[in-house]
């Protein structure tokens, strides 16, 4: 038994089965990420301006990752074109580059970007206690944020002296051994538009010991986990799901680069179709990232 039109297109529809299949899958993926982005829109509109962080992610690294992904999108096309021209060697090389780029993207994400959030500490100060920490928030006074018509900043971030203070419920104080730029010089003009300052998260102002009273904090304080705030929840969820798609693509490409490429000897046309279909999926992954990058890193 043979399923018709697995390689050659059906004359009246002009399509081969896998191509229609992958487009339908892409349509469902669009709806999947559509749902997630709808969630993002809801969360962002619902948040008070000062609750929605800006500049927490490293823009140069993110930009580099964007380049990596776009580059891999080009190489997968080149690989497919090479296969169409029956240039197997070029096909192998371009496909190799494609999955290496995919892997590089994942490595940057998992070894630098994500872990970098976990050793950082952040806490929202309750409104009634804001005065106590005014030195680090910079809301009051002639040159304060309120006087300049800006939303108050109620967030302090840095590195705690001992993480056990954070976790232990019997400890009522948290001591920050180092704080971030915007709490170090809260009234500087640079920190006015927190929103467009790419801030290197590892670079902290050492020696600025700040004692935070736990009862002054909104209960969601802690490392930059999804629990700390909804921005991070959106970030981890959407980049996580996107990362799973990248991983899937990388596995598929490694397969077609390795054992799967044997098909070239028996049916190059079918291999060509498979690369086209896998490529379409890979472009979708790229396409999603094109939206993810600005909404989390830049805007």
């Amino acid at each position: 038994m043979e399923i018709p039109y697995t390689v050659r297109p059906r004359p009246d529809t002009g399509l081969a089965n896998p191509k229609l299949g992958i487009w339908l899958f892409i349509a469902s993926e669009v709806m999947l990420f559509g749902g997630l982005f709808a969630g993002y829109i809801f969360m962002r509109l619902g948040a008070e301006p000062w609750m929605w962080p800006h500049g927490w992610l490293n823009v140069p690294v993110g930009t580099f990752n964007t380049f990596v992904l776009i580059f891999s999108s080009v190489t997968v096309i080149l690989s497919w074109e090479a296969l169409k021209m029956r240039n197997f060697k070029a096909y192998k090389w371009w496909l190799f580059l494609t999955w290496v780029c995919g892997l590089l993207f994942l490595i940057i994400k998992l070894s630098y970007e994500w872990p970098n959030k976990f050793n950082h500490f952040g806490a929202y100060i309750k409104k009634e206690a804001a005065e106590k920490y005014e030195e680090y928030l910079g809301n009051e006074g002639e040159d304060g944020r309120l006087a300049r018509g800006q939303a108050p900043r109620l967030f302090i971030s840095g590195h705690p002296k001992a993480w056990s203070d954070v976790k232990d419920p019997s400890m009522d104080k948290i001591v920050l051994a180092a704080i971030d730029d915007e709490n170090h010089t809260p009234k500087s003009a640079e920190n006015d538009r927190a929103h467009f300052i790419p801030r290197d998260m590892v670079h902290l102002h050492e020696g600025h010991e700040v004692v935070l009273d736990k009862k002054d904090l909104v209960n969601g304080f802690g490392p930059f986990y999804p629990r700390l705030n909804t921005y991070l929840a959106c970030y981890f969820m959407i980049t996580g799901l996107h990362g799973l798609h990248v991983l899937g693509g990388v596995i598929v490409f490694i397969f077609f680069w390795g054992p799967g490429s044997k098909l070239y000897k028996t049916n190059p046309e079918q291999l060509c179709n498979r690369i086209e279909v896998a490529g379409l999926f890979w472009h979708l992954v790229d396409l999603i990232w094109i939206f993810v990058f600005p909404i989390f890193y830049l805007l």
Binding site: S28, E29, F33, G34, G35, L36
Partner: peptide, 8 residues
């Protein structure tokens, strides 16, 4: 088209 938003 309707199931993916619930999945998300």
């Amino acid at each position: 088209l309707a199931f993916p938003p619930l999945e998300s």
